[in-house]
Design a protein around this nucleic acid. Structure first.
Lengths: 108, 108
DNA sequence: CGTTCGTATAACAGGTTAGTTATATAGCTA
DNA sequence: TAGCTATATAACTAACCTGTTATACGAACG
């Protein structure tokens, strides 16, 4: 099987990750990090995504709560985390999201 | 606004309804009721869907548990319930599912 | 080094979900 | 009407989810 060939996605895991207003919000914000978050001194928002701290502030929940939402999204593969110089940046995994969308269209 | 115009679907509600192996299973079975369930004396499986009882048996949970899963799916609008002669039949709401799929493709 | 900053994990509380059994409701049928 | 069948609801329990505060870890810097 080629790598391009769709390996069946666990839809339940994906839907669980998406079944949260907060996480949907995060995914939406990450569509355009430089638009939705303040400028960052370190780390290009469009390359590595937004840093945890900004997401915490914008979500309006405690830092650990936001951190766990981001973990759920990364565990599902919908978001990619990059740690650099003590900061962690999050960006959408567009490929995984596209795969998921395709799978939903084909199999739901 | 015309009725054909897409009124924004509550994605969180939909994803919550879909975030369950059992309910995904039900939706899959209902793609082809006459294939996946025993023949019914009453009610055309391809027109009205499968009756609750068969779904209960195939799910392998208690009747009330299955009944509630079906309620979650119907409340989300993904499944349509038809009561007739004391039986209740369930079928997929293909239009709603297509709308949802489209919304996911556009906005996820 | 020791402190500070950013993030992750631990421990706990409250609400929700999903299962169970028991019971109610509604439509046939004898 | 009485009784049977199919389904829905109620009441309860265990597990899970999401928030909190407190704490640990790791990198940068005085």
């Amino acid at each position: 099987m080629s790598l391009a060939e769709e390996v069946s996605i666990d839809l339940e895991v994906m839907f669980k990750a998406l079944a949260s207003e907060r996480r949907l919000q995060i995914l939406d914000w990450l569509k355009d990090p430089s638009e939705n978050f303040p400028p960052q001194e370190h780390g290009d928002p469009d390359e590595h995504g937004a840093c945890n701290q900004f997401i915490v502030e914008k979500l309006g929940v405690s830092q650990p709560a936001a951190s766990r939402h981001l973990k759920v999204l990364t565990d599902a593969g919908l978001v990619i985390a990059t740690s650099r110089k003590g900061w962690t940046y999050y960006r959408r995994n567009e490929e995984a999201i596209a795969d998921l969308t395709r799978q939903i269209a084909n199999h739901l």
